[in-house]
């Protein structure tokens, strides 16, 4: 499958300071990709380069196969985005704002404006000036302008910021629908890790301008499971396990605490049984959440 967004060794240097350091990344149609990282890690800069607000210092960005630096208009017509806060013209009504963006994108009809307005649940307030809107309503209008031209790629910076729980739920469900049914490629960034965990298929962790890890959301949450074994002769058993599997583990009294994935538990049990150890208990010792994982990866300096 061809990537919808392709970053090839993208770097950004501002005043001789490297903000983004050679990021390569492919994001595919139909997936929700989360950009995660502490403040200043370069999430926003990465997003700004993808939507054409900033130029890359080195490397290339391809949108649906089009090189952004070469065919700007052809690349950007596939993207709908909200960059940081959805700041729109306060003195214009919601509808006028949408008309404004509609005129800038080829092939968007007036009916489509009504459609997206209804979609984000703004039909009743669309003729009011945006200055009267709450942050949540601006967020919805922001989503509406991003969806106006039915883009193949949707990029949302902190999409749930300012929404109430019901609104978050709604947006999450809608993004899921777009990814699964309309095959839209969605990139979100958020500092709310729990939120990312619920929303994304895949996550890339940014730190100091480097993409230090990308993984399926499942890998993030299961690979770092801890399992606790209660066995006889714990320290001897631990030694054998370490020798056979190389896991990181801790021994306390008769308990061995092992960082491992669940699917490897039978192998460990087999080893212990064949080694003549008695197993009294095997129990999960806690699932590390994305948040813990994130702190481990980034060294906790967020």
């Amino acid at each position: 499958m061809e990537a919808a967004i392709q970053l090839k060794n993208v770097s950004k240097t501002i005043n001789k300071k490297t903000i983004i350091d050679s990021i390569s990344l492919d994001v595919y149609p139909g997936e929700i990709f989360g950009l995660l990282g502490p403040n200043g890690a370069g999430k926003t800069t990465t997003i700004r380069m993808i939507v054409g607000l900033m130029k890359t210092s080195a490397g290339e960005i391809h949108i649906q196969g089009q090189n952004l630096a070469v065919s700007f208009e052809n690349a950007l017509k596939h993207i709908g985005a909200v960059v940081e806060n959805p700041e729109m013209y306060d003195y214009l009504t919601g509808r006028e704002n949408l008309i404004h963006y509609q005129r800038m994108m080829p092939g968007v009809t007036k009916e489509r404006i009504e459609e997206v307005t209804a979609l984000v649940g703004m039909s009743e307030r669309i003729n009011e000036p945006v200055g009267n809107y709450s942050l949540g309503m601006r967020q919805r209008l922001g989503l509406a302008q991003a969806l106006l031209h039915q883009p193949a790629i949707l990029i949302l910076d902190e999409p749930t910021n300012g929404l109430d729980p019901a609104g978050i739920q709604e947006i999450r469900a809608y993004l899921r629908y777009l990814a699964e049914e309309e095959n839209v490629c969605i990139v979100v960034s958020s500092h709310l890790l729990a939120e990312m965990e619920k929303m994304c298929d895949r996550i890339g962790v940014l730190q100091h301008g480097k993409l230090i890890q990308t993984a399926e959301i499942g890998e993030f949450t299961t690979e770092n499971n801890r399992v606790c074994f209660k066995v006889s002769q714990a320290s001897e058993a631990a030694e054998q396990i370490r020798h056979a599997f190389g896991y990181a583990l801790a021994v306390k009294d008769t308990y061995i605490d092992i960082s491992m994935s669940e699917k490897e538990v039978p192998d460990v049990v087999q080893l212990l049984v064949s080694g003549g150890f008695s197993i009294f208990q095997v129990k999960p010792a806690g699932r590390s959440t994305l948040e813990e994982k994130f702190l481990t990866i980034t060294g906790g300096d967020s």
Binding site: L53, E73, L76, K77, E84, E87, M88, Y89, Y101
Partner: peptide, 14 residues
């Protein structure tokens, strides 16, 4: 000043 420049310049218009 109003920040609207961002949503203005991400359109497929040079």
């Amino acid at each position: 000043a109003s920040g609207t420049i961002k949503l203005l310049l991400i359109r497929p218009v040079k």
